[in-house]
């Protein structure tokens, strides 16, 4: 078992699946030549290992996704990289009206086994380049949506996504690419649609995913020194959303906070809160709270960006507020 980055874990998943299945191809903008492979170097070097199967495309997201859908209908297994999730908006029609619909509309006779990989998140890139549409994507029947937080999960989930027979939107995070974690040298898969407990605790349940898991784990460590033990549930897959662990956890802790990076109103947190109160209302000692991003277009200025997205200290503040029964 070695410690590798999230980026390297993704690359290994791609490499293993490319080697295992000749139907797998990888397409995207600047994934071959630029910087040796990819705006965020996930595909670096792969084009040499798999000649002809890793290809640079024109800047035309609508076509990238659409052509991949057609190829998938024809039996190929495309993995497309959308340089950032902001550019997925250009492909929205293909994602929602075609990828997600084919199987059902054609009576189960057509399959679209494809993966759309794309990083979300921020990094001083201002309003149009700092978004995450996980809530929008996860609201679409017919799509599967994955958002791993650790290198281990990233690798195992990407391999499953590539083998899945449905369109999977696989959300990565700019701030996670350089994070490190243990990943086995031997092959493993992580099933789509299964959440994971990342920390065991008895005082308060935190439900989260993606980059906010990392911030939550930092918060949990700090809170543990004060005697507050968080039970941290990582959703990992957002559609289908597995809330069984979260519900079981709430029955134990009687308190829950949902931590998300995105805009709060009509966000994924709202879905989790609604589901928790439906399933465990009588176990709750306080309304389920949300930590979320401010509902503003992301500003470029350093101080404003810092104030817009949640970090560990926001999680800590929310936990303190709830433990002090302020809700």
């Amino acid at each position: 078992m070695a410690e590798i980055t999230y980026r390297e874990a993704l690359k290994r998943a791609l490499r293993e699946e490319l080697a295992r299945d000749p139907e797998v191809v990888v397409w995207g903008e600047d994934i071959v030549a630029y910087g040796g492979g990819g705006a965020y170097a996930v595909t670096a070097g792969l084009a040499k290992e798999f000649p002809g199967r890793i290809r640079d495309t024109p800047i035309a997201e609508e076509a990238i996704v659409g052509v991949a859908i057609g190829a998938a209908m024809g039996g190929v297994r495309p993995v497309v990289e959308l340089m950032t999730i902001n550019f997925a908006l250009v492909a929205w029609d293909q994602i929602v009206n075609h990828a997600a619909k084919q199987h059902h509309m054609f009576n189960g006779t057509i399959n679209v086994p494809m993966v759309m990989r794309s990083p979300a998140g921020f990094g001083r890139t201002a309003a149009t380049h700092s978004q995450n549409f996980d809530a929008w994507l996860a609201s679409v029947p017919g799509l599967k949506v994955v958002e791993p937080a650790t290198p281990y999960d990233a690798k195992g989930l990407l391999k499953s996504a590539i083998r899945d027979n449905d369109p999977v939107f696989f959300i990565e995070h700019l701030q996670l690419y350089g994070t490190r974690g243990e990943v086995p040298d031997t092959e493993y898969l992580i099933p789509l649609g299964v959440s994971d407990r990342k920390r065991e605790g008895k005082h308060l349940t935190v439900v989260t995913w993606g980059r906010m898991l990392v911030e939550t784990m930092k918060a949990a460590q700090k809170l543990a020194t004060e005697g507050i033990e968080l039970d941290v549930i990582d959703l990992r897959t957002l559609r289908p959303m597995d809330l069984s662990l979260a519900i079981e956890s709430v029955k134990k802790t009687n308190r829950a906070i949902v931590v998300e990076e995105g805009w709060r109103s009509i966000g994924l947190g709202a879905e989790v809160v609604a589901s928790l109160q439906e399933a465990a209302f009588h176990y709750l000692d306080a309304p389920v709270a949300r930590v979320a991003g401010l509902e503003v277009p992301m500003p470029y200025a350093r101080n404003l960006e810092r104030a817009t997205v949640p970090f560990a200290d926001d999680v800590i503040a929310a936990v303190h507020a709830m433990m002090a029964n302020q809700y």
């Binding site: 001083r124 890139t125 201002a126 309003a127 380049h129 277009p297 500003p299 470029y300 200025a301 350093r302 404003l304």
Partner: peptide
């Protein structure tokens, strides 16, 4: 620089 004296008060940065 992302400062208040900028053309859009630091909201947009280089690209805007």
């Amino acid at each position: 620089y992302g400062r208040s004296g900028g053309t859009t008060g630091g909201r947009g940065g280089s690209m805007h």
